[in-house]
Each structure stands twice: as C-alpha cells, then as structure tokens.
Amino acid sequence: METHVAADQLLYLYAFIPTNEQTDTPDMTGIDPDSPIEYISHGDITSIICRVKKDEFDETQLKKNVENMSWLQEKAFHHHEMMNHFHQSYTMIPLKFGTIYETKESLESIVHTHNERITELFQTLKQKNEWNVKIYADKQKFTQSVLEHSPEIEKKKQEIEQLSKGKQFFERRKLDQFVEKQADKEIAEQCENLHEKLLQFSDQSEVKKNWNQKVTGRPEEMCWNSAYLINESDTDRFVQVIQDEKKEAVDKESGLDYAVTGPWPAYHFSSFIEDSDT
C-alpha cells in the first residue's frame, strides 16, 4: 500500500491490531472525511490509520479544535464508532482520541520500540472488553438518613439547644459538617463494596475521577467512576452484579443510581508506553 504522507498531512492513529487477524481491507471514511481508513502493516502488528490535514490536526490546531464542542462531538463520535466497529472484529489496542504521528517513520519507530509490549497487550486484551461504571448519589437522602438514624446526633442537637445564640450558630455548622461527612462516608462505603464485588470478575480496573455535576447534567452527584477489563465469559455475571445492586437500591430507595456502559474497547488498559510521570 502506498503510505507516503504528504507534507501537509499527519497520521491519525486509531488502533493496533494483530496482523494475522486482519481479514479485509477497510472501506470506510476516516476522521478526515476526505481520507479513507487504511491499514499499515509492520510485521505482526498492523496500524489502523487515516491521513489528516495538518491545518486541522497539528498540535496547536487540535488543542483549539477540541474546545469547539461541535467539532469535538463529531470527531469523538467518529472515533468511538470506528473503534467499536474494529473492536467487533479484532483483538485491538485502542488509542485515545487525538493520537497523531507526523510521519510514517515516526509511527513505525514507536511500533518497533514497543513491539514486545504491544504483542503482550494483544494477549492480555484478547476476548476482553472494558466496562465503565458510574454511581450517582442523591446526597440529601443520605444526610436525611444520617439525621434520622443517629442517636448521637439527636443528643448533640439537644445539647446545642441549651447553648447561647452565638455558640449555637457555630455548633450547628459543625453538626451539619459532621452529618455531611457521615453521609459521604456511607456513600463511599457502598461504592467500595460494589467495586470489591466487581473486582472478582475483573482482570484489571481503574478508579477514575468523578465528574462535576455541571458536566453530567444530573441532579445527583457522581460519587463513583471506574473502568473494568472483563473477560467476555464473565460479562454476564459482571453485569448481573450491577443490575442486582441497582434493583436493590431502587427497592430500598437508597438514593444511589448505577449507570453501566459497555462493552468498550479497552481504552483504559491499553497503555503501551510506560508512563514515567503518572
């Protein structure tokens, strides 16, 4: 295949797949609608790429473009859809959105340098999917339950009644903070419990940062966000654990809501370059 990269072009890298699994040549439009998706073979490893324009994807432009929501939405969806498509057919090392090489040589040298790790990852990721779990908490329900069920707090409240007005103010604030802390603790415990259960079926896992409420657009607070690498044969049991937990939460009106998404390509478990700074 002709893989010369023109001077005004860059290579957008989607994924690595084992060359021996590759059955067909792709016939799809890439992340740049003017370019097709291509395979570049480097021995046992094959890259899935698309040529993109420098004036859209070089480092400076890319940073500018990702702040444009409609651009980001379109391109991120494309990335996501293509990855799902390939993920259905191949053992795949998915790259994060915006992984770009300047030349075919620079891509090849990366593949060459990390050949062993990439091959190892193919073995690790074979027949596995990533699943993401997010838990949302109705915080008020939890603080309410702490207020209602803690005799300690009831006692404290009565004590505060006896104090002078000025002191009451500060003691009440202290009490509120205590209640909130207790509620957070209870939420965290329940999340950790589920996490422990899910680990039984997980090959690997990553606990992630929670999203700001303004981002999720949900009235409840995100209190847990994690990714799991799950063997296909364990998927049903993994999902069942969450479904059971969810049902129990609904029945008990616990104030927690569980959102599961998957199967995803193993975005969180595909790092082939050793991170020195994370």
Partner: peptide, 25 residues
C-alpha cells in the same frame, strides 16, 4: 435528547499527541 449545560469549557488535559519528528515521544 439531553441538553446538558456546561458552565465549564472542555479542554484536553493530556492530548496524546505523539507528534514528533525524532524517535521519542
């Protein structure tokens, strides 16, 4: 379906831009 209001602007914290002319990221 969802109209999500973001009062913050999306920014990549770590664009995995492996743009490079040498052999190293």
């Amino acid at each position: 379906i969802d109209l999500v209001y973001l009062d913050l602007r999306i920014l990549l914290t770590s664009v995995e831009t492996l743009i490079e002319s040498q052999n190293k990221p």
